[in-house]
């Protein structure tokens, strides 16, 4: 009986940890294409919050951007409101942190 209980506990732990890993993995990276409706640069210029309308769901998604290259593009208007963006972001603790933020358009 003791042995059976141990096996059950081990199985339960394995199942729980697998679910946790899966949940973490799915939270790791979300990909989206959407159009920027609003860009708000922080006063210190070290971050920005962009609101994008998801092309698929038509829902607004708010993404925080901290990488220098994209921030520079906001500052000199290489990326502006109305641009369509291909983005990857992490969704953690209710905040979407950009990992990639590029215009879809090319020549």
């Amino acid at each position: 009986m003791k042995k059976l209980l141990s096996i059950f506990i081990v199985m339960a732990l394995v199942a729980f940890s697998s679910l946790s890993v899966a949940r973490t993995a799915s939270a790791e990276e979300i990909k989206m294409i959407g159009t920027i409706s609003k860009i708000e640069l922080a006063a210190d210029g070290k971050s920005a919050v962009a609101t994008l309308k998801d092309n698929k769901t038509e829902q607004d998604v708010v993404i925080t951007i901290t990488d220098d290259l994209t921030l520079e593009k906001f500052k000199d208007h290489r990326i502006v409101e109305g641009d369509e963006i291909r983005t990857k972001y992490d969704s953690e603790a209710g905040k979407n942190i950009s990992k990639m933020f590029k215009k879809t358009a090319g020549c």
């Binding site: 290489r78 090319g106 020549c107």
Partner: peptide, 14 residues
């Protein structure tokens, strides 16, 4: 950035 404004997206996108 002056160069990359064009050369980054050559050929149809980033």
């Amino acid at each position: 950035k002056n160069c990359m404004i064009c050369h980054e997206t050559a050929g149809g996108g980033a």
